[in-house]
């Protein structure tokens, strides 16, 4: 089930507002398509991203995929646990598998993104 408490991009990232900051990760559909995740190339703290900007690469045994910022902001935290345990993304993509946090985001920007229902219909149509 696609969580209702957050928004989604066409490129399979999710974004959720927490304490005024935007937490970003990838969806369950994305982690399953990628397969066993082996490495996440995380951005440096303090980097400024525009909405849609590429902020990292996620590697699995069979692919290397770019990660795109759902909204603009400044990288205020990265999930260091992913360095040793990248499989967190496979196990818990919406929780412990979070990837980065952005500060200085425009909360209104989230409303332009897909909600859970839109995202689900998108991935169902694709199937």
């Amino acid at each position: 089930m696609t969580p209702n408490d957050r928004r989604y991009t066409k490129t399979h990232e999710w974004v959720k507002l927490e304490d005024g900051k935007a937490v970003v990760g990838i969806t369950d559909h994305a982690q399953e398509a990628l397969g066993d995740i082996t490495f996440v190339d995380l951005p440096k703290l303090g980097r400024t991203l525009a909405a849609g900007g590429e902020f990292g690469v996620i590697e699995s045994v069979k692919a290397a995929s770019d990660l795109y910022a759902p909204v603009g902001g400044v990288v205020s935290a990265v999930n260091q646990a992913l360095n040793d345990t990248p499989e967190l993304i496979n196990r818990d993509p919406y929780g412990d598998g979070w990837i980065i946090t952005l500060s200085g985001v425009d909360a209104a920007a989230l409303t332009t993104l897909l909600d859970a229902a839109d995202y689900e219909s998108k991935i169902t149509v694709r199937n």
Binding site: T38, F39, V57, E59, A64
Partner: peptide
């Protein structure tokens, strides 16, 4: 190992 570095997986990256 680490085959995601190689061009047949990583392609233009």
């Amino acid at each position: 190992t680490l085959q995601a570095r190689e061009q047949h997986i990583r392609r233009n990256k």
